[in-house]
Amino acid sequence: MVIQQQNTPHLKLKERIFEVDLLRGSAIVLMVIFHFCYNLAVFDWWDINTNTQLEWRIFRRIIVSGFLLAVGMSSYLVYSQQIRWLKLTKSTLKLIVVAWLITVGSVFMYPNAWVYFGIIHFIAIALPIAALFSRFPNTALIIGITCLITYQLGWISMRPLWEWSVHHLHIPTKTIDLVSFVPWIASVLIGIYLMHKSLFNLKIKNNKLTNSLARLGQHSLAIYILHQPIMYGIMFAIAKI
């Protein structure tokens, strides 16, 4: 996401924020690794279960947290001074189109576990919310923390909506990618506050590794769209040989 230069009392903005690109790039590399391992299990080349085994569940949560924190931080940089509705609309529509393509593609790749609300679907909804809250970072933090606490206490859950959708919309009970609105919206809202307070300004040194990861972060959406069909296609071809 390109960050337009604007004035803010909290930090001096550049055309791009290196640390945010680095975070996004690191997350996309970890996601490629995760999906590679998942595909090995799909083709029975590795006996693992990424849905039930604790280490894989933690690994996935780290990846999703990285992406969603970056969404919140980028939203603050772009929209905290003024919500540019045309830009926001274009970005959201692009995500909706990508989400639809992912759903259609997953139906062919995983007919019994296709994606109906994965991370891109989630971001398509979370981005406008983040844009609105970017001007109220303290409120975003309070709501984010409240969301986490109430979810952990079992006071709020998306499971009733999921069960209704399974029964009435006939979506599969298993899916390869599901990002529940609660509690994951908390990561986006907390990301807004982190950038507002410059708490992610780590001053990471540029080197070959960090520069490469940051460049990947600048193209994370394209990589996300392409990496799994390519890997799955190659493995499928190998399995047929």
Rank of each mutant, 00 (worst) to 15 (best):
Trp114Asn: 01
Ser220Glu: 01
Ala186Tyr: 01
His35Asp: 03
Tyr38Ala: 05
Met1Asn: 10
Phe34Trp: 07
Ser198Asp: 03
Ile96Arg: 14
Phe181Ala: 13
Phe34Cys: 09
Leu127Trp: 15
Thr210Ser: 11
Val97Leu: 15
Ala124Glu: 01
Ser91Thr: 10
Leu189Cys: 02
Asp21Gly: 06
Ala222Thr: 10
Val98Ala: 03
Phe59Tyr: 12
Phe117Thr: 05
His227Val: 00
Gly217His: 08
Ser91Leu: 14
Ser165Ile: 04
Ile192Leu: 11
Pro172Cys: 08
Thr210Val: 04
Ser180Asp: 07
Trp114Met: 05
Lys203Ile: 12
Tyr38His: 04
His219Lys: 09
Ala237Ser: 14
Tyr79Ala: 02
Ile176Val: 09
Leu194Lys: 06
Gln152Ala: 01
Ile96Ser: 06
Leu178Ala: 04
Ile33Leu: 10
Asp21Lys: 15
Leu54Phe: 15
Ala214Arg: 10
Leu40Ile: 12
Ala99Leu: 01
Ile190His: 01
Ile119Asn: 12
Val2Asp: 14
Gln218Asp: 07
Met158Ile: 07
Gly144Gln: 05
Leu13Asn: 02
Phe18Tyr: 11
Leu101Arg: 04
Ile63Phe: 10
Val32Phe: 10
Thr92Val: 00
Gly191Cys: 12
Thr50Val: 10
Val107Trp: 06
Leu132Ile: 05
Phe67Leu: 03
Gln81Ile: 08
Phe117Asp: 11
Leu148Val: 05
Ala130Gln: 03
Ala214Ile: 08
Gly118Glu: 01
Ile230Phe: 04
Leu127Pro: 02
Leu30Thr: 01
Leu221Ala: 09
Ala214Tyr: 10
Thr175His: 06
Ser198Arg: 04
Leu213Arg: 11
Leu221Ser: 12
Thr173Trp: 09
Phe133Asn: 11
Leu209Thr: 02
Leu132Cys: 07
Ser65Pro: 02
Gln4Leu: 10
Ile142Lys: 04
Tyr151His: 15
Arg61Ser: 14
Glu55Tyr: 08
Phe122His: 09
